[in-house]
Design a protein around this nucleic acid. Structure first.
Lengths: 154, 154
DNA sequence: TTAATATAGTTTCAATTGAAACCAATCGCA
DNA sequence: TGCGATTGGTTTCAATTGAAACTATATTAA
């Protein structure tokens, strides 16, 4: 019963979800390491700043949607960012439950240093692939992304 | 100074590390959901069981290497698995610090149900890609994997 | 109007995690 | 031999996280 031959073999190192997970963590950790110490910025905080840099005036819920984080995590990240003076919060005129969030001047200063850093890292990663591979990867991720996130939506 | 035009724009939804991270979490969560409830098995526990199913008699350190988990996480997962009677632990003859770990009969029973389930999920995921895309993805992951993990080793 | 329901966001409390300290066994080598 | 350094693995303590409850506002519909 415990003889190897009788069991389905799952080679973890070849198992796609596992490979995605380890690769993704390794990459994210490597990038995060470069700004966590220097800017006292966690990965979740940076994600919030990144979407606010791109889309000004979002509410917390919209930030949660765009970062794929849950609202508790966003709430906490925002508390820290606001405490550090990197994000300003106003209350929405049309709905006083909602907040209107934007990077402060101080926040933009951080953003302007971290964004290029992050993009550099992405380039460094992509540099291991030739242009054809880069295109395939982008397309494949699009496909999987759409397929999987649709799954969730149901 | 806070005018959009002056800032580097980082579109999170197009940022490779972010896409990898969200996709990977979504996939792993979906798979884990199917065995967490049914077998009271966490993702880390399953990873430990998966490598023990493949490589019999590993030490805890070797499990940690093969699962890309840190030794504390492995130690705790093992404590739970041994407590549940799914893994047996002996002490290595040649070095009494090391343990020799194997799935118990009970552990194998779980393994035999979860492994096919996990492989099915992988197939379901890959089904969104045509054969050419599947090959490119495998190759690309190999490349990135090697490149990134080398980086760490240094 | 007002009562019931829904939504935005925060807080609380318990469970999980991570870092550092720790213990025990082994290794390297004077 | 024997003693400092290393390795395998666990424990401890603080920080982080997740789930559920909660507050405040808005919406719906009677």
């Amino acid at each position: 019963m415990t003889d190897k031959a009788e069991h389905q073999v799952l080679e973890l190192e070849r198992f796609l979800p596992y490979r995605l997970s380890v690769l993704s963590n390794t990459v994210s950790q490597a990038i995060a390491a470069t700004y966590e110490r220097r800017f006292a910025l966690t990965i979740t905080e940076w994600r919030v700043m990144a979407v606010l840099g791109r889309y000004d005036g979002l509410s917390a819920r919209e930030v949660a949607e765009r970062t794929a984080m849950d609202k508790v995590a966003v709430s906490r990240a925002l508390a820290r960012l606001i405490g550090a003076g990197r994000v300003r919060r106003q209350t929405a005129d049309h709905d006083r439950r909602q907040s209107v969030l934007r990077l402060s001047a101080k926040g933009w200063k951080v953003y302007d240093q971290v964004a290029p850093l992050a993009l550099e890292h992405e380039q460094r990663l992509l540099a291991h692939l030739n242009p054809a591979e880069q295109r395939w990867l982008a397309d494949i991720l699009d496909k999987l992304w759409d397929a999987e996130l649709e799954e969730i939506a149901r």
